[in-house]
Design a protein around this nucleic acid. Sequence first.
RNA 1: GCCGAAGUGGUGGAAUUGGUAGACACGCUGGACUCAAAAUCCAGUGCUAGCAAUAGUGUGUGGGUUCGAGUCCCACCUUCGGUACCA
Length: 946
Amino acid sequence: MQYHPENIESKWRKNWVDTQLYKISNDSTQPKFYVLDMFPYPSGAGLHVGHPLGYIASDIFARYKRLNGFNVLHPMGYDAFGLPAEQYAIQTGVHPAVSTDENIVRYREQLDNIGFSFDWSREVKTSDPSYYKWTQWIFLQLFHHYYDQGQDKAVHIDQLIATFEAEGNKNVKAANTQDEIFTSDEWKQKTAKQKDDILMNYRLAYRKTGYVNWCEALGTVLANDEVKDGFSERGGHPVEKRAMMQWSLRITAYAERLLNDLDTLQWSDALKAMQRNWIGRSEGAQMFFDIVGHDKKLEIFTTRPDTIFGATYMVLAPEHDLVPQLTTADQKDAVEKYLEYVGSRSEIDRMAEVKEVTGVFTGAYALNPFTNKHIPIWLGEYVLKDYGTGAIMAVPSDDDRDKVFAGKFGLEIVDVVDKSDYPGATLNDKVGKIINSDFLNGMEVKDAIAEMFDRIEKLGIGSKKINYKLRDANYSRQRYWGEPFPIAYDKEGVAHALREDQLPLTLPELENFQPASGGKSPLARAEDWVGQIPDMALETDTMPGFAGSSWYFLRYMDAANENEFASKKAIDYWQDVDLYVGGTEHAVGHLMYSRTWHKFLYDLGIVPTIEPFKKLVNQGMITAYGYYAENLKFEDESSLIGNIKDFEAKQNIHVGSPIRLAYINEYLDGQNRITKGKFIEYFEKTGKQYNVIGDSTKYHWAKDENSEEYFTVNVVQEKMSKSKYNVQNPDEVVAKYGADCFRMYEMFLGPLEQSKPWDTKGIDGVQKFLRKYWSLYYNESGLNLSNDAPTAEEYKILHTAIKKISEDIERFSFNTCVSAFMVCVNELKRVECNKRQILEPLTILLAPFAPFITEELWANMGHEGSVHKAQFPHFDAKHLVQDTIEYPVSINGKKRDTIMLSAQLTQEEIQAQVMELDQVKKYVEGKEIQKVIIVLKRMVNIVVKE
RNA sequence: GCCGAAGUGGUGGAAUUGGUAGACACGCUGGACUCAAAAUCCAGUGCUAGCAAUAGUGUGUGGGUUCGAGUCCCACCUUCGGUACCA
């Protein structure tokens, strides 16, 4: 009997649905285990072969845990709000809800195809009002709370108001952006609007000015993704930064806890390091500099107060609030011109630029509080508004960027740190002896910093402060397809929260998804909707993508609950996620936001754990090969361009697109060349469909020694995306080879964490393995199993596999599991094993990897229940005892021979036997033996003097 | 730029704690079966020299530590992910 996956798989797929095999209960005496995948955004391109990589790994783990007696929560859902659906709606008029649902249906089919053990009764969709009701609810909690630094937790805003009523804000210790100190009486006299403004400076969800990418020509706000070099990616229109009132989340309030609690997590060191660096805690001094001729002071933050005698100028972020006031009439034109230039620059551009610094003098001077010198105030794009205070004291002698800046603009440089005692130390190292610094002279940097903290506080010009690189999260989007804010403004502009019974606030129906005038969200045009509460206007911005994805893992615990986002009982049972699998691209963004939300919910007593994801594994990305004609000509440019890199360096994206040659790989020769004949064949058969330019005069043809015309194709690895025509659909692979084969092949490709290019080259090997495995159970006439007792060798083969596979699953090394299965089946085939006592446990062992074929064989062996409800085989070490060991014998670390020896031998006995080897005699003869290193059961190394 | 990761045969990769580099596959070469093909099976396969035994060499590059380094240390190169509005 032959193995035919298509029949087997469709049969069991149906059976598992009918028997609700993967539905699990919140009511169980078994220990719980929560295995979670980062849920997908349902894009129009459907799933590609990269998506299931992590899902397969987590599915294997979930199944493995189930076989080991755990009640496993393994859900799936959709991150369904997002930009692409809205763009599609603008282009085609199809409502985002409609296209999203279509995409979800497609995703579901594709997922079902692969045989995952998801409990679909818990499916969530972030764009569903029954889901986003709770996203809005959590937002309201954030709005109603502030962060009390005394209690180190979120506290209801009513308590803060009570404090203001009683004693003003002078004793309030809270995460805030409030500058002004007021008394109880002053508070009581404030208008509703003034009170609202002050409370905004404390709320965890608050409003402040933020900057957006404004594109005048498109009349809309663009995502960073849609902006390239200051121009819109679509159309190439100029883009500028524009200030807008935006909602923000005060995640910086949680910075310290986000940092400290990393220690409790089983995440990779790399991932923790990324989070730590993102939070970017630093200790330093907050200082105020007097401004010559102004009564305002300039606030700066520095980690190097010891270098203040070298502070010869100051630099402000171009967006700094004081810029208009400080700029003198003489410098006005220059400053305005500079601001215009900076407006077109992205943050990455601004930080990445090292060779060329830019800046402009404001005309104003500050007073260095220690040297009492007038130092010029400049603007520079390398200072960012949101980092620190948006202003620095520049010490060109001890900071790389300050040095370059001073060099370019001819500013004074005073050496203040002598590093001659520390050869090899760079400017970034905080070491050396202070010089040219009055009372600090002769001190080590470390001591000088401590001394300065004291002096600054005594002089009342500042204080010691902890600063974080982490910034509050911008929470407003001027878009349609996101969660509406449950916020309405009254005539004075005071923000009022909707009541809980008014949730969910659903999106209005629209036909036109173009932005409203002034870059407002399309919601602004739904006037009835905006004005649905008398005398109030609803907020028209919507929430960002991370809103729904910051808490979805909690909803899975009790997905159908209409009264709470999840019941206390469900949350107490499932607690947190035991294993989270997803891509590194989420290493900071999503994970930081989720952790913050979770901590906030913990403060409210809603969740029992301080962290949401106990263990996290990053799967690598599956990339695709991209093919580009090496010598390009462009549609409207006649010059030849050497290669794709030169083209990209030119960044002239409006000339034409690089000539991408989709799916050309079969037509290339060994040197990645394509001949003219092959190219014509390729173009006719394949290229045409993928917008490849067919006109052969557009390509630069070289001639080889046989006068054959060809050009070379650059092969690169890149992300899979619809726009690159390199998407590989898992359905095609499943149709051809079966889901079991697809699952195992994805695992076989390489280590889960590494990124790797997709290629079906090796898939035949996995298919052969499955056929071979199947053939152990059958001969020509049918099932052929023996009930005889297995031999010692057969036991050894099985238990070697049990050990290796359990260990490798535990350490998420699934590629080596597949190899181990291959070795096991090859060996069993070699000894022609058909013993039930061997093949039965083997079937359970393989079930997490290949759920269909194992279910079929399990049933055929006469079992009533599912193999997926069986017990994982128990490893018994007694089957692996080895009595002989093959020792490698090296002379000076170089292997010269091997020898089989009894495992019982002592070091002396081994040495005696090894010395008798011909190879050893040959190399040792006439030389002095200095040392013989014997590691029992491992190796022998003889060290001789040459 | 900054933060993080990865570089091993023709290809994907293995080597878990510093101890036989290349497991397991793909591909390729030769053979068996066959009228033939597919499928299957057997043998070989890092590179160089050699009929062979064998020798030399070999884990991105250059140094170092060690009896012994793919693995540890230092410096560098290349590629990939993130860089706060793609998700």
